[in-house]
Amino acid sequence: MALEKMIPLMLDGIRDTMYMTTVSTLFAYLLGLPLAIALVLTSPKGLAPRPLIYRVMDAVVNIFRSIPFLILMILVIPLTRLIAGRAYGSTATIVPLVIAAAPYVARMIESSLLEVDPGVIEAAQSMGASIPEIIFKVIIPEAKTSLIVGATISSGTILGYSAMSGAIGGGGLGQIAISYGYNRYQTDVLLVTVILLIVLMQAIQLIGMYISRKTDKRVRE
């Protein structure tokens, strides 16, 4: 493909991919964070144990996580139409992306929150802290570094999903790779999209790790 055609195509692709990834990650966190907090609180060893509620949420998360993304995308087409008005394109793809990523994000956050030293939580309890105070003043700030690392990994995974969605009508670099590289045998386009995806992934990883290192106070200077 000629360079003057390739560049605008790729710029559009990057823009769409970044749009899908950031918006999906944002919504996945909006759903995943409360879910993770609820999981941590209601677990049998949590601050407010509710074994039944915990088991139900735990099972729901596992069910959604066990459906492969492409199949999930097809499964939720009716819902996607309902929310986005159509089942193809970048905006529409956000719906299945969020549904697939939210349980994943919830697990990532849950594991970060569980890493917090129980002794610190006990100390807060001994000072008379309430459960919301323990969550927002102790657990989340103490888990900050791990949460940022988790967000880095999660947005990387969502980037991968968004590329996969190109196979059945999603937008962005994945769609370009499939419609040009696979359907029309334009290997040069395929290669460029792959390189761009690698660059994007690296950028996410580098920025995420930089922020987590900068904000972590546990490191000796």
Partner: peptide, 17 residues
């Protein structure tokens, strides 16, 4: 509990403060 403070073997300080 605000009148009954506690200190611990492993100090239990907030590492990020």
């Amino acid at each position: 509990r605000q009148e009954v403070s506690m200190i611990f073997q492993h100090f239990n300080l907030l590492q990020q403060r």
